[in-house]
Computed example of a mutant assay.
Amino acid sequence: MSGAGAPSTSSASAAGDAPCFEPAAARTTAGAAARGRGGEANVDAAYEREAALLAKGNAQAKSALGTASGGATAAAVSGGTIDVYWHVINNGSSLAAGNIPDSQISNQISVLNAAYAPWGWQFRLVATDRTTNAGWYVAEPGTTAETQMKNALRRGTADDLNIYSNNPGSDLLGWATFPASYASSPKKDGVVLLFSSVPGGSAAPYNLGDTGTHEVGHWMGLYHTFQGGCSKTGDYVADTAPERSAAFGCPTGRDTCKSGGVDPINNFMDYSDDACMFEFTAGQDARMDAQFSTYRFGK
């Protein structure tokens, strides 16, 4: 967090844990390749670990839950500037090979700031590097290629955001790690995005930059709005309406649980189309603040 100076560009050459990863096949609309902004097995695993810690009365987990969710949290960092290190992984010099221009990276940072600034968080691009590596270009979560890529390129500490853009296999739109995973796997920390999901990319209707917004939400400690289905605890945020399952497209008025209001399809942590997503809640802000304070700030 808080690095010095204006955005800069550097170069990197190719060398020969519970992430959230988003399979594109999980989100479908008529005639479009879709996203599932979160590899469900790993998101669920992180969720279950947190539930287990809370059941055991773990003080750190309670603190990181956030006051809006009923947790007894200590004083939390309520915002700040997060330094971003962007790693462009490509398979050649063209845009089609993943070599996205600086303008698209800048636009993605602007999208993040538009979403998070109302809650006190800003993102500042401090460095961009470009690596041509065919194996890393199609890296998927949990693979040797992902490990090699992140070990070689990751910069900063727990409160710095590393974003990798590539073209992962298995129709993935991206994946992210959660704050609580940093201490045990610091080199794995960060967000990976399908290069064509950034603003102006070709992955319509998921090319307005909100795959980035969604994945950074996981990196800040948020679960999906439909996490836990219609259960009382849900996503551990009190002011997101319960939702039985992910929303696709933009199904206005959808209501999948008997109480609590209509589904939060406009929330960045659902699976709706980019154009349908535009909000976080005060409760999500409180959870992000608590998670960042507990697991990232000064670490």
Rank of each mutant, 00 (worst) to 15 (best):
Q108P: 03
I109Y: 01
V111G: 11
L112K: 02
L112E: 00
N113Y: 06
A114R: 09
A117E: 10
P118R: 13
W119Y: 11
G120V: 08
G120E: 10
G120R: 00
W121T: 05
F123G: 02
F123S: 03
R124C: 09
L125C: 09
L125A: 13
L125D: 08
V126G: 05
V126C: 05
V126P: 07
A127K: 15
T128W: 00
T128K: 12
T128G: 06
D129T: 15
R130Q: 10
T131S: 15
N133L: 11
N133S: 08
A134V: 15
G135P: 08
V138F: 10
A139L: 06
E140A: 09
P141E: 13
T144Y: 03
A145I: 01
E146C: 04
E146I: 03
E146Q: 11
E146G: 10
E146D: 06
T147V: 09
Q148G: 14
K150C: 02
K150A: 00
A152W: 13
L153I: 00
L153M: 03
R154V: 02
R154G: 00
R155V: 02
R155S: 11
G156I: 02
T157Y: 01
T157H: 11
T157N: 03
A158N: 11
A158P: 02
A158S: 01
D159I: 05
L161E: 07
N162Y: 04
I163A: 06
Y164N: 04
S165N: 05
S165F: 01
S165Y: 00
N166F: 04
N167S: 13
P168Y: 05
G169Q: 09
G169P: 08
S170I: 01
S170T: 01
D171K: 14
L173F: 12
L173M: 10
F178P: 15
P179K: 09
A183F: 10
P186V: 04
P186H: 04
K187V: 12
K188F: 04
D189A: 11
D189G: 07
D189K: 07
V191W: 03
V192T: 15
L193D: 08
L193P: 05
F195M: 10
F195C: 03
F195I: 12
S196H: 13
S196Y: 08
G200H: 04
G200R: 01
G201S: 08
S202G: 11
S202Y: 14
A203L: 08
A203P: 02
A204M: 10
P205S: 11
L208T: 09
G209R: 00
D210H: 12
T211A: 10
T211S: 04
G212K: 09
T213V: 15
H214K: 08
H214W: 14
V216Y: 00
V216R: 03
G217N: 09
H218W: 01
W219D: 10
M220L: 07
G221P: 04
G221D: 06
L222K: 14
L222Y: 08
Y223G: 10
H224T: 08
H224Y: 06
T225G: 05
T225K: 00
T225H: 10
T225P: 07
F226V: 00
F226D: 00
Q227V: 09
G228M: 03
G228N: 13
G229L: 00
G229P: 06
C230D: 04
S231E: 06
K232Y: 15
T233M: 15
D235Y: 08
V237K: 14
V237T: 12
V237L: 01
V237F: 02
V237E: 07
A238K: 11
A238Q: 13
A238E: 07
A238D: 08
